[in-house]
Write a protein that binds this DNA or RNA. Structure first.
Lengths: 140, 140
DNA sequence: ACAGCATTGATACCTAGTATCGTTTACCGA
DNA sequence: TCGGTAAACGATACTAGGTATCAATGCTGT
């Protein structure tokens, strides 16, 4: 009996069990909105064990259901990935409110190829994060 | 009586004391070569307190004498910044041997400006790290 | 409906770093 | 060169974010 929920569907289709704690974690992430820390998820779910929260988040990261974002001060937040936007993308992060936005850029990818060949590296992955002020924080 | 060492010179010119532990940390970093973790510095200097290692490394980061590099698995290494290459740059990291190389790219900077205006963000800082195989690891 | 294995919670542990605090020491000025 | 003093020190305890262990629980295919 596949659930209607796309995240839960993907989990079970990938051979993972659909347990109460997992559903709770997914629901909580949606409640928390744009971005959240592991600790926020944890505090919202005192009934779920700490290890389970981290295990579930790790699983979701592996299945690319959430992505990890490193803020400029080094703290780590996560964001749910929508079905449509699951393609390769990067993040712009507001240093004031912490809001995380996404962007894609073909130009960027091409430029990275150039850099790769210049340095003699064969580049497989990258981490790109931009920090600044979102438009609403600029207005304040 | 300014010392001949450029790093030590900068330290004292910026109003910081030139202590034994600080000299030891700087020397050790040079011995460790291309890149090193805080733990490696620590283990090479059992006589120096753990807190002092981290305090010194934090200070050096603030004075931009070393830069922090996040590896693809999340571990953090550091690299001494040469006097000449102290300008804005990014890192290419070998996933096999951990070697850290640097690059600069005006094109990249320009592209990031574009992305910024597209998303409505005013971007102040960024974190860019490329992961791959360096030429010598490719040959193996 | 039930066996079996994935998953769980509790707990201990880990890495990377910061805070506190009483002691030591580099440095500047006399 | 000799203090006085604030900066820096080591030891220690603590934090954040995450992993390892292991016995108990509970999904799920048949």
């Amino acid at each position: 009996m596949p659930s209607i929920d796309p995240i839960e569907r993907t989990l079970s289709r990938q051979g993972h069990r659909l347990t109460g704690p997992r559903r709770a974690v997914v629901d909580t992430m949606r409640l928390l909105g744009n971005h959240f820390t592991a600790e926020e998820v944890q505090q919202a779910l005192p009934a779920v064990g700490r290890a389970t929260i981290f295990r579930t988040m790790k699983l979701m990261r592996e299945l690319e259901m959430i992505c990890q974002v490193v803020l400029d001060d080094g703290t780590i937040v996560y964001q749910l990935v929508g079905e449509d936007e699951s393609e390769h993308h990067h993040h712009v992060i507001c240093s004031d409110c912490g809001k995380v936005a996404e962007f894609t850029s073909d130009g960027l990818e091409r430029l990275l190829e150039d850099v790769a060949s210049m340095t003699g590296f064969e580049v497989g992955a990258h981490r790109i994060e931009l920090y600044g002020q979102c438009d609403s924080c600029q207005k304040k």
